[in-house]
Design a protein around this nucleic acid. Structure first.
Lengths: 236, 236
DNA sequence: ATTGATTTGTTCGTATGTATC
DNA sequence: GGATACATACGAACAAATCAA
């Protein structure tokens, strides 16, 4: 239930229904008809999305900054939600779609055994007709038995959710600077050896199995990944 | 109290006291003599550090991966804790230490008004005698009235904590690819125009004021920032 | 394959502490 | 100092997934 409350609060924030300050916990308790614990759990979620500042004795305040630009991708929210970038959904142009076995590099990147059979999907992704990223993603075939052509053209994650009730639980993300090889440079219209922001992600189901891993190369100039951390102060 | 429990569990994990699986919540309740809710809150913290996988009906499992390498910086833990990179504390060589007023660029990067007086500290940072990063950090003087020469040589955050009881609460992080200008290229021994991984961070106190912002340029080859996200599934 | 025990997930109520206003 | 608002902690109950007999 706290999920629904969290989603509702997030939507309210996105619609600018709160100027700057959220209602108090007490008011939210009344509005949603749940206990204070549940409201707080929901606010934890919103907070983790990097959308709130919480001040003891005062209240909750909206952080507006990182949401405005197509050039900033908020990584504090789930991978799935990021398929909706601000500015609309991404369109895909499939470059490659086949099945291969993991070599050493892919096995390491996917935290999988060597020689695992995986779907490979390479796509150029566009935001408002403009090239946004080059995405190379893999799905172990013993976990994902089938991917339709149609899903690969659109949202693979939606397909997995609707077909297999398969939803990601946790993601490990590695951000690095990626030098483009000849093939990728040509695909994104840059020179071989040029460097871009790269994001390697491993997606796990709730039971801990890998159902997807990917490498995304962002080609926008002055593009940034945003995330929000809380400094949990452990020391006395 | 859940902070102490969390810290204790984290230390136990780092010392490899659990093979792969943590004790059950019930056992932790007995071990620490606190309620189950408190144990769960502590486990939330450890989980947010990217150190755990949790499986309903089964238990908590240790994620070992991202911790081993000096080439991976775990951003899921607080900024402060990251001053202790695996491999030991960073040593600093101060390049510049003065007071300036924010220009347009700095004001934006620090989420501050134009013309704010700030301490500026530029340092080369070394891990085991090897250049690790170039860090450019700023402290608004109306928030941080004084920084000692000595603290700038060592840990500024420790100085602020001990002198002013000033501890960071939340951090906004922006990761991007940074082209090196002539000065910085020379400092880190690369060519002008070379690109590196850049991290812009804004640190807030609990009451929401900015006490620090910084830009860190990482110069290790194949260096990566790691972070861990939970895909909170909001849709039905 | 079913059942029952174990283990984590969610929700509620209540009480007390601490920072802000 | 008093009222307000968020932070922490305990106890209890039931749900849902897993695991083992």
């Amino acid at each position: 239930m706290y999920h629904e409350v969290a989603e509702s609060i997030i939507q309210a924030i996105l619609k600018n229904q709160y100027e700057d300050k959220l209602p108090t916990e007490k008011e939210l308790v009344e509005e949603y008809g749940v206990s204070r614990n549940t409201v707080r759990k929901a606010l934890d979620v919103v907070f983790a999305h990097g959308m709130l500042r919480r001040v003891r004795g005062s209240g909750y305040y909206v952080i507006k900054k990182p949401l405005q630009s197509a050039k900033v991708l908020n990584m504090s929210i789930g991978f799935d939600e990021n398929s909706m970038v601000s500015g609309g959904p991404l369109k895909s142009k499939v470059v490659q779609f086949d099945t291969i076995e993991t070599n050493e590099d892919l096995a390491a990147r996917g935290n999988l055994p060597l020689g695992t059979k995986v779907y490979r999907v390479i796509r150029l992704r566009y935001l408002e007709e403009r090239l946004y990223s080059l995405e190379e993603s893999y799905f172990p075939r013993d976990v994902v038995p089938y991917l339709s052509d149609e899903s690969v053209q659109n949202s693979i994650f939606s397909f997995l959710r609707e077909t297999y009730q398969m939803t990601g639980d946790t993601t490990e993300n590695y951000v690095h600077v990626q030098a483009l090889d000849e093939r990728y440079a040509e695909l994104v219209g840059k020179k071989e050896g040029d460097q871009a922001l790269g994001l390697d992600a491993i997606n796990y189901l709730a039971n801990g199995t890998v159902f997807n891993f990917s490498r995304t190369i962002f080609v926008y100039d002055s593009f940034a990944l945003y995330y929000h951390t809380q400094n949990i102060d452990v020391k006395k």
